[in-house]
């Protein structure tokens, strides 16, 4: 209850005036509310953490332990399943593919959208609001609806079943969110910097690259992290646009191997762990930024 000091004093005042019967009632209500509040918080904690903990735990147990006692802790740290996942099922290729695709797409997106957001934030020019509105409206387009045209486009570009296809398509995903975050970042930079640079005769590109970009690095990092997470996790277009193992990404490989893993749950859980851990680690390192950007833009990835 004590979310600010004045209310505490007021409660105290009210308590002085009240009878002891009311006082009891109030205390019971407060206790009940506390129980409810912490009950909900514990529930939230459990439904979010337990599935992940359970998966990681199971990756260290053998098949029979998984089947007979799903809740037990693993009795040893056995990394064998992880070794198998990497050696027998090529997960190092898939991990590398995921990294390559997600990083390249993120970097390219940052360059493209930083340029766009910079001019939208700092200059007046005909069409500016139209562009901004159109770019942010893309948020409302469900990615699946474009499946067929993008599939055909990639075929026509002769990019089917390449990592390039994924990079190119992912590049388009972060548009609305990056514009939103980066525009705000560039707008926050005082205009005097630009003017000073202009007086010193710095070129347009130089002003952008040497002055504005470094000053917007928080925004760039936020947008970059969000896009990287989204690309790392993407499944639908990876499934649609690639075929061969050479270009398979992790989430896709995971879904692919349910058949292969169905005799060995340990390996399945190990593979799941390999797919989910990097996302969690990146998030853990950057959680403040992730949460802030979600709160402001209302999107993930």
């Amino acid at each position: 209850m004590a979310d600010n000091a004045p209310s505490v004093t007021r409660t105290a005042l009210v308590r002085q005036a009240g009878t002891s019967k009311e006082d009891v009632k109030r205390t019971t209500r407060r206790i009940l509310f506390g129980v409810f509040m912490y009950g909900v918080l514990i529930f939230v904690f459990v439904v979010s953490a337990l599935p992940v903990v359970w998966v990681i735990m199971s990756a260290f147990k053998d098949n029979s332990a998984i089947l007979s006692s799903p809740f037990s802790l693993p009795n040893q740290l056995n990394f064998q399943a992880f070794v198998q996942v990497f050696t027998l099922y090529n997960f190092q290729t898939y991990t590398l593919n995921s990294l390559l695709v997600a990083s390249l797409a993120t970097l390219l997106s940052l360059v493209v959208y930083a340029m766009g957001a910079y001019v939208i934030a700092r200059f007046d020019f005909p069409g500016k609001s139209l562009f901004y509105i159109l770019f942010t409206l893309t948020l409302l387009v469900p990615p699946h609806t474009k499946a067929q045209p993008i599939f055909s486009l990639i075929l026509n570009l002769r990019l089917y079943d390449t990592k390039t296809a994924l990079v190119v398509v992912y590049l388009s995903f972060g548009m609305a969110m990056s514009m939103f975050i980066l525009r705000a970042a560039f707008m926050a930079i005082p205009k005097e910097f630009d003017e000073a640079a202009a007086i010193e005769g710095a070129s347009f590109v130089r002003t952008f690259w040497m002055i504005n970009l470094p000053l917007a690095k928080t925004g760039l990092a936020t947008a970059g992290i969000m896009m990287f997470l989204g690309h790392w996790n993407e499944y639908f277009y990876a499934m649609l646009l690639t075929a061969s193992a050479k270009h398979r990404t992790l989430p896709l490989a995971l879904a692919f191997f349910t058949e292969a893993f169905s005799y060995d749950y340990t390996q399945m859980f190990a593979a799941l762990t390999v797919v989910i851990i990097p996302g969690i680690v990146i998030y853990a390192l950057t959680q403040e930024q992730v949460q802030a950007s979600v709160a402001s833009s209302g999107v993930k990835g």
Partner: peptide, 13 residues
Amino acid sequence: TVYMIPNVISGAA
């Protein structure tokens, strides 16, 4: 912090 975890994991996973 923990509540965010399901959202940073791949939907497929």
